[in-house]
Structures are given as structure tokens and as C-alpha cells.
């Protein structure tokens, strides 16, 4: 399983959605995840990859961890895994 597939599976589990139906372009809102749902999804991602995701639902705009789309989350997680390995 690639990182992207694992991230999608974790988000799908939290959103009670079929992983096959999730594409990188989708927003988390469109999956029905609210702010707490996203916090829970990020927690499962941190546990799965043993990384710390610098995400907080309290900040507007750029600067923080990009959670605008599933693809953005995947890229962010890939970056954190690479940074950890470096």
C-alpha cells in the first residue's frame, strides 16, 4: 500500500466512506468531515505513520498544514515522512 492509499483508507474510515470513491481532488468537507472529524482523522494518520502533523483547526489561511483537499493532506504526510527519514 502506498502512503496515498493508506491516507485515503484512514480518511475513508473516519468519514464512513468507500476508499474507492475518494479522489485527491476532494475536500474534507465534501466527505462530511467536520472540524472534530478532521482532528480525529489526523490523529489516526499520526499514529499510523508515527509522525506529528502540525495541524490546528484554529488557524485561517496559509501557514499551517494544508488540509484543503485529500491530495494536499497526502502531499503533506509524504513530506513529513520524508523529513523524518532524513
Amino acid at each position: 500500500m502506498t502512503v496515498a492509499e493508506r491516507v485515503i483508507a484512514l480518511i475513508a474510515a473516519r468519514a464512513l466512506a468507500d476508499p474507492a470513491a475518494i479522489t485527491p481532488g476532494m475536500t474534507v468537507e465534501s466527505l462530511g468531515l467536520d472540524s472534530l472529524g478532521l482532528v480525529e482523522a489526523v490523529f489516526t494518520i499520526e499514529e499510523a505513520f508515527d509522525i506529528t502533523v502540525p495541524f490546528t483547526p484554529n488557524e485561517d489561511g496559509p501557514g499551517g498544514f494544508d488540509v484543503s483537499t485529500v491530495g494536499a493532506i497526502i502531499r503533506g504526510v509524504e513530506g513529513l515522512i520524508a523529513a523524518k527519514a532524513a
Binding site: V39, V42, F43, F55, T56, P57, N58
Partner: peptide
């Protein structure tokens, strides 16, 4: 433990 629990919710500045 008190702060750690709140950390989990990601609402602390």
C-alpha cells in the same frame, strides 16, 4: 495529564 488531554483536541494555542 490535564494539558495532554486538551492537546489531543488541538484547540490550544
Amino acid at each position: 495529564g490535564g494539558i495532554k488531554a486538551w492537546e489531543g483536541l488541538r484547540v490550544l494555542s
